[in-house]
Each structure stands twice: as C-alpha cells, then as structure tokens.
Amino acid sequence: MALPVYASPLERIWHYTYIAICVAIFTFLIAPILIVIPLSFNAEPYFTFTEKMLSFDPEGYSLRWYDILLTFGMTAPDAPRGASWWMDVWNNATWVRAAKNSVIIGVSSTIVATVLGTIAALGLSRPEMPYRRAIMAILISPMIVPIIITATGLFFFYSATGLAGSYVGVVLAHATLGIPFVIITVTATLIGFDRSLTRAAASLGADPTTTFFKVTMPLILPGVISGALFAFVTSFDEVVVVLFVAAHDQQTIPRQMWNGIREQISPAIMSVATILVIVSVALLATVEILRRRSEKLRGVTSS
C-alpha cells in the first residue's frame, strides 16, 4: 500500500483521501459495538453521555445496571447479600435464568450440529460422493432461507407433532440453523487434507475407526471447533424461532433483549450488550488462534 516515489501530486492526494475513507469505514464498523461499553456504566437512566461522564467525574459512572441484571426478578432483592441472596439470584433472577436457558439450548444444539455436520462433511469431501452439489445446496439452505420462513414452518410442524414449547423442539431447530456453518468450516479444513495419510494408516493395519480418531480427527479438530463455535453463536443469538416455537416461560438472553427493546428500553440492555461483546471478543480470539493452528498443522503457508 506504500505510495510509490513517482506518484503525482493528484495521486498523493487520492492516497491520503483513500486512507481517510478506510478509517471512516472502519469507524462505522466498530464504533457502534464499542459505544455501548462506556454507556453501560452510566449512572443516569439515559442512552447518551452525560456531562459528568464526559468530564470523567467518577460520580457519572456506576455499576447500577449490572446490579439490576442480578436483582431483577429476585424474590428478595433487598435482603443482605450473603449465600442465600446469591442462591436467590441463581434461582430467580430473570437474566440469570435466561442465561441458563441460552447455555443449555446452545450447548445441546451445538453438539447435535457438530456431530452430524462433521460426519457429513467427511462424506461430502470425498471425491466419489454422488450428487455432491445438490446435497450441499440442501444442507446449506437453512442459512439462506429467511429465518421468518423457517420459524413459520417450524411453528406449524411443531404444533402438529407436539414439539411446541419443548426444549427438544428449540434444540432441534437451532441445530438445523447451525449445521451450515459446521459444514462450511469443516469442508474448508478438509480441502487441504492429505488423503494419503489415511491410506498410510490403513496400510499399517488401522481400521477405519482408529484411523479417524488417531489420524483424521486431530488434523481437522481446529476446523471442527471453529464450526462448533459458529453453531453455538448462531443458537446463542437466535430469537425468531424461539419467539415462534418456545413456551412463554422459556426465556433466552436474545428473547429477553428483544422484549426489553420492544417494550421499554432500559440501560440494563446495554450492560447485557457489553457482556455479550466481551463474549464475542473471546470467541473471535479462539477462532483466530484455531485458524492459525490449523494452517500450521496442514502445512498451509500463508503468503
């Protein structure tokens, strides 16, 4: 990107304008995500920076909205904060219960999506796979079909089969939505996979199961884990299917946020948002590390 020495003045001007444009676009991308973090520490119930915040007056900042995440929905929020208070939080606080539901649904659907998706990706990446293109198109389609159509279809289907309002129904639906991501990441990992390794294992007497667990699996594991994280995030962030098929008391974090935004938006939403941003930073870092490890393992040198 360096400016060549022979650049004309006009080109120099354009070069710096271009960099300015790029900085502006990066700001557009990242600023909305970072803005919620300082605002979540607002001492006032406003959605903008107060004068006290701008002058960095400690009084302008507080943890009250994080405290509300714990106390909202508790039976005795004003009781002294001891072991029994924390038990109350764990059992009754609305956001804590939503988080527990989200994690249960997310983990279960991730397991289903990852196991089925990885096995299928192994088959799909074999050269002799018949009708690969058509089958691949079907398996990726949950990502492409508008979520409202999927939710509508599932609503009718679950009402007819009695899965409506059950954990199983939500988990199956979220697994379906996560599967395309697992397929995409695992097949991408398998593209650079050296098939002579499995043949070598077979010629040394290993049966297919041993070959899979001792040779194939360690090599594709980074891709599998990235796919699983994608599937987990998909489920953890999904609200439309939950709104359509889950029971009323099956609150998840996104559903609780959805209700919060639609009814009366409170700064507590921003403290949840901040926590979720931190979670996504952690997930992104994990995926980045895994991708580099996978490239190293497969001997792909990045140019």
């Binding site: 803005i35 919620v36 953890f236």
Partner: peptide, 15 residues
C-alpha cells in the same frame, strides 16, 4: 461485528 450478537448491534444503533 460479524461475531457480535445481532441484537447487540441493533441496540447500539438505537442508542
């Protein structure tokens, strides 16, 4: 942004 929850991003834009 790609990894951040859709609802978080929408909330930010409201704010």
């Amino acid at each position: 942004p790609f990894w951040t929850s859709l609802l978080v991003r929408t909330t930010s834009w409201i704010v």
